[in-house]
């Protein structure tokens, strides 16, 4: 299968690859996928005053999954939580020119974004109610 230049570029130079300490209260973590399906994405966001100031990812998966999550971290940085939540998988598909068999990689990235935001919100809500 031929990859688009953008997928190859993200694969060779992944953006924001790494991890934050999960327990920090300004960090939201989303882990989606399953090893037996061949894809697991971990996306983390660092939030200050409702804005994502930093993001990191780690991905087990094919080149398109790696590129989708790398791109997602780039796009999330600087956005408010509400803005980041609106990132659509179709935009990722378009940006990376993913073929139909790789659309699930972009869906997973969208799920990971939502999961990371939900995790952060859950953490802060709990803290607030205590």
């Amino acid at each position: 299968m031929a990859y688009s230049n953008k997928v190859i570029e993200h694969y060779n130079n992944p953006r924001n690859m790494g991890s934050f300490a999960k327990d920090e209260k300004e960090i939201g973590t989303g882990i989606v996928g399953a090893p037996e399906c061949g894809d697991v994405m971990k996306l983390q966001i660092k939030v200050e005053s409702g804005r994502i100031v930093d993001a990191k990812f780690k991905t087990f998966g094919c080149g398109s999954a790696i590129a989708s999550s790398s791109l997602a971290t780039e796009w999330m940085k600087g956005k408010t939580l509400d803005e980041a939540e609106k990132i659509k998988n179709t935009e990722i598909v378009q940006e990376l020119s993913l073929p139909p068999v790789k659309i699930h990689c972009s869906v997973l990235a969208e799920d990971a974004i939502k999961a990371a935001i939900a995790d952060y919100r859950k953490k802060t809500d709990n803290n607030g109610s205590i």
Binding site: P14, M17, I31, G33, C37, V40, K58, T59, I66
Partner: peptide
């Protein structure tokens, strides 16, 4: 492996088989 969340978990001593994965 440096990029893999599974490798990271394994190195932290988490047994990947016992994790409840969110499947579609």
């Amino acid at each position: 492996r440096a990029m893999s969340p599974l490798y990271e978990m394994a190195k932290e001593g988490i047994d990947i088989k016992t994790v409840q994965w969110a499947r579609d």
